[in-house]
């Protein structure tokens, strides 16, 4: 039995689930913004990165870990809200490449500012739980307290978002503003506020992700922290469908597991290649995502 639990396949699945949880969270944050405002946010990695620097920087002033995490989340809420109001709102109704370009500019500027203020040297973050694998009969099982924490966090965040959207009045208003802004406005929903809230939520989900990535991936916190992760997160979101939160997280986790096997049985360079092929094939088969109902395009 323990030979099965420590076997290569089980270890790969467990490691894959951990990575997949991260991809799923990034995908989820992309979906939140996409649903609210029809913008694919290319700064979705950089905004939380900045919030993480702001919050976790307080660790060097001996603030308690969880207080720093709280500051990160508050900073993320603020950054998300201000970004939507200042940068995104003027672009509604413009050609769809305009917000893409603006968000790429925002990505460049955030990474440059982060590097100018905090330098490009990686800054190691303490993990709140041990990142060393549990062992069974002397063999690592591919699961550590920290990676379990990651998976649980991803599931909790996803559950919270789904609960918010499905079962609360606020969630109903959020969905209504995204689907039918005019009607919602007539019915008294503050649509503008809802769109801002969508961006704030998305950046907060991103901040959770960025903290996990910076403490786990042996990279530490760097300005370019989220570039690669963003690509995987986008692939997960596009495969699952940019409109579906559950689809995004599901395909993120599936992608994590598949790519873990690719990295283990082929080589590490093949990971992103296979991810790219998955993206291209799935977009050709179903441009609106594998896990969504297809909808007629609005003309």
């Amino acid at each position: 039995m323990d030979s099965f639990l420590t076997s290569r396949i089980v270890t790969d699945i467990l490691n894959g689930l951990t990575n997949g949880a991260i991809y799923g969270l990034v995908a989820l944050s992309l979906v939140l913004v996409w649903r609210a405002t029809r913008v694919l946010n290319f700064a979705q990695g950089a905004m939380p990165m900045f919030a993480t620097y702001l919050g976790m920087g307080l660790l060097s002033y001996h603030w308690p870990y969880w207080v720093c995490v709280g500051v990160c989340l508050v900073a993320a809420f603020a950054i998300g809200g201000v970004t939507e109001r200042v940068l995104v709102r003027p672009l509604y109704g413009k050609p769809e490449i305009n917000p893409i370009v603006v968000m790429v500019g925002y990505l460049i500027i955030l990474e440059a500012f982060a590097a100018a203020i905090w330098s490009t040297t990686p800054r190691s973050l303490p993990a709140p739980f041990s990142p060393i694998d549990w062992r069974l009969a002397g063999q690592p099982v591919g699961l550590s307290p920290f990676s379990l924490f990651e998976v649980v966090t991803a599931l909790v965040v996803m559950g919270a978002i789904v609960t918010l959207f499905r079962f609360t009045r606020l969630g109903l208003q959020l969905r209504a503003s995204a689907l039918a802004p005019e009607v919602s406005r007539l019915l008294g929903v503050r649509v503008g506020r809802m769109l801002t809230l969508g961006w704030m939520l998305s950046t907060a989900v991103g901040a959770v992700t960025a903290i996990l990535v910076a403490s786990n991936f042996f990279t530490g916190l760097t300005p370019q922290l989220m570039d690669g992760i963003f690509a995987f997160g986008f692939i997960a979101a596009a495969v699952g469908g940019l409109d579906s939160p559950v689809g995004a997280v599901t395909s993120g986790i599936a992608l994590g597991v598949i790519l873990q096997f690719v990295g283990d049985y082929l080589n590490s360079n093949a990971i992103i290649l296979v991810a790219l092929v998955i993206l291209i094939v799935s977009l050709m088969v179903r441009p609106s995502g594998l896990l969504t109902r297809s909808a007629a395009r609005r003309v």
Binding site: I97, L242, L273, L283
Partner: peptide, 20 residues
């Protein structure tokens, strides 16, 4: 079959994958 944002994201993934 793609519209703007998807294509932009896909080309971004290609740019990130190119060194690999």
């Amino acid at each position: 079959r793609l519209r703007g944002p998807y294509l932009a994201g896909m080309t971004l993934a290609f740019a990130v994958a190119f060194p690999a």
